[in-house]
Design a protein around this nucleic acid. Structure first.
Lengths: 144, 144
DNA sequence: CTCTTCTTTTGACTGATTCAAGAAAAGGAG
DNA sequence: CTCCTTTTCTTGAATCAGTCAAAAGAAGAG
């Protein structure tokens, strides 16, 4: 579990000022991986009721730009954030309940960037989203 | 190019009623792959000025549910639609201009579904989004 | 401690998408 | 061909995520 001190250090390391909203946002994202902006806002306000939604959005963007958090947005859902960055992992999304879980890159880093230069595009990242059913929804469907 | 007759047949095949808005929407998506809802609406109205935006949204949803069109939504962009379905292809998205192009599955079908059952999820589809620069933006960056 | 600069607050606003109720049209039965 | 039922469309308002802008407020350098 990240302590506030660790969070502050992480912010300073990327050259960001340490402010209450930012610390709270980063802590919230760390504690609730794959949370959307609304959830982050709610969680942040639990410990810091006065923050504006604007500050939360701004913090999320700033942190995402700095590479401290990552923003993902599967089809049909609002933006979600997570603190696990830089390790090329992907996501499984439940078609039924929208639950998201992390999946380590299964086919190796090389394969993830295959298809480079198709159509002349210069590709620098491959994002993989697996779609299916989470254990709970899967069980609910097979035993109605 | 899809004729209206082909479009009507496609609608009937999946058990949908054939209506003017639906035919127009399907034709528009076929003619403009990767168009967003707003563009589809504009294109549809070129030939059918009276349609409501609601009808277009509804048609897109219905067609997507029926599997006639596919909806994709890369991070940071609005929903986009295409008629190419059922062939497991993926997309390259330009980081700069947002342009989207199709990419055939590069690593073979098997690899695309590797990672099955991680976290107990039952995975039925893998969606891959490649991020990079399109030829135009790539050229603009290297020769300023 | 003071100043400059970056952040937050506040509050209004945009643009995409959805909700709801009645009117209209599609397709099957007679 | 006409009527009837059901689905679909229109209209108009509402919601929701996210953004813009100006002024007030903190963080950190010197």
């Amino acid at each position: 579990m990240d302590t506030n001190e660790q969070i502050e250090r992480a912010l300073r390391e990327v050259g960001l000022r340490v402010t209450r909203p930012r610390v709270a946002v980063l802590a919230a994202v760390a504690a609730h991986p794959h949370a959307d902006a609304g959830t982050v806002l709610a969680v942040v306000r639990e410990g810091l009721p006065e923050v504006s939604h604007q500050a939360v959005y701004d913090s999320l963007h700033t942190l995402a730009d700095a590479g401290v958090v990552r923003c993902i947005q599967p089809t049909g859902a609002t933006a979600r954030y997570e603190t696990r960055v830089g390790d090329n992992h992907h996501h499984v999304v439940c078609r039924k309940c929208g639950d998201i879980a992390d999946v380590d890159c299964a086919v190796g880093e090389a394969a993830c960037l295959t298809a480079s230069h198709d159509h002349g595009f210069t590709i620098d990242e491959a994002e993989v989203t697996y779609w299916g059913l989470c254990p709970r929804c899967s069980a609910a469907r097979s035993e109605p």
